[in-house]
Design a protein around this nucleic acid. Structure first.
Ligand code: SF4
Ligand code: SF4
Lengths: 156, 156
DNA sequence: TCGATATAAGACTAAATATATCTTATATAT
DNA sequence: ATATATAAGATATATTTAGTCTTATATCGA
């Protein structure tokens, strides 16, 4: 019942790109540093975003990532589902065949409704809106001195 | 972004008890068989439900579980959170201190809203309503012959 | 009182998933 | 050519999930 780190990182990446606007090339290194995402992990996430048609990846020296469409046309939902696949709050929502009872189950209907509601909320939110507020998001001031202000959850 | 099996099993357990009504004692064995939950696993889940004040556990021969309150007073949310703890769709929802940016983050606000919405939907649903429809839920007819009609997801 | 039956409690195990990291290859600017 | 950047995929580790097993305890009924 929780978004994965990969999903969260994907959102950070697109949000950072959105703050630069559509089409602006930003290096993976910069994105990774400014959003506190491990660079190699970001690479994998970026590939999923590229496959979903959200960003374009430029190889070679001075390479990086850029948004393919306007931030206002990219929903939070699209980014999340590009990374973690379709949202389904219970197994039977995404795979009704996993429970023979799903056709009759009243609980199943509640999950379906809740799932739909959640997806709607995330779909209504676009990255132009998210990027609009000045104070947000993550490390707006790179001149802060190189230290990383985000407290990444300790995993190891 | 998915309910755990334990959470799903907890719901099945309470739903089964709800169909018997408040105060009716039902053996763990029967509940486990009728809802396709491994009996030992159900024991652990039941202990969490008991700790949350939802059911009472009777030991000894002819023991079992019973609902402490009327099904109409038990919400889907209460059962889920008794098992998996508080719902939080993103880490920063439940632990804002996990991301130093949460106070300013526009994405964080969306998650908070979505989380609240989801909890509201689950809270509105009570087990009297869920148990009301005849066809639901799980194995309504024990005389079916002992085979287990649910297709539990293969884990091992 | 004794034995059968039921759950309690918690240790233990196995599988799946999440979270990276490392290595080698490939593309591009200069 | 070389330096720099990402691609792609193998590998590694940690965490969580899911389930099992063992020993102890409680209760009923003969
Ligand atoms: S019992 Fe209902 S809610 Fe649970 S998995 Fe089956 S269909 Fe879904
Ligand atoms: S960047 Fe925003 S949404 Fe992401 S973890 Fe931090 S507060 Fe939450």
């Amino acid at each position: 019942m929780r978004l994965t780190r990969a999903g969260e990182y994907g959102i950070r990446c697109v949000l950072h790109l959105a703050r630069h606007g559509r089409g602006t090339l930003v290096s993976r290194k910069e994105i990774a540093a400014r959003t506190d995402v491990p660079p190699h992990f970001l690479a994998k996430i970026a590939q999923q975003l590229a496959k979903a048609g959200i960003i374009e990846i430029m190889q070679g020296a001075n390479g990086g990532y850029r948004l393919l469409t306007d931030p206002s046309e990219i929903s939070l939902l699209a980014v999340i589902e590009a990374i973690i696949g379709g949202i389904s709050l219970n197994d039977c929502v995404g795979r009704p065949e996993s429970c023979h009872n799903s056709a009759l189950c009243t609980v199943h209907r509640v999950w379906n409704k809740a799932n739909q509601q959640l997806r709607a909320t995330l779909q209504e939110t676009n990255f132009a809106t998210l990027a609009a507020e000045e104070a947000c998001c993550l490390t707006p001031f790179p001149e802060a001195g190189g230290h990383n202000p985000l407290q990444r959850k300790k995993m190891i």
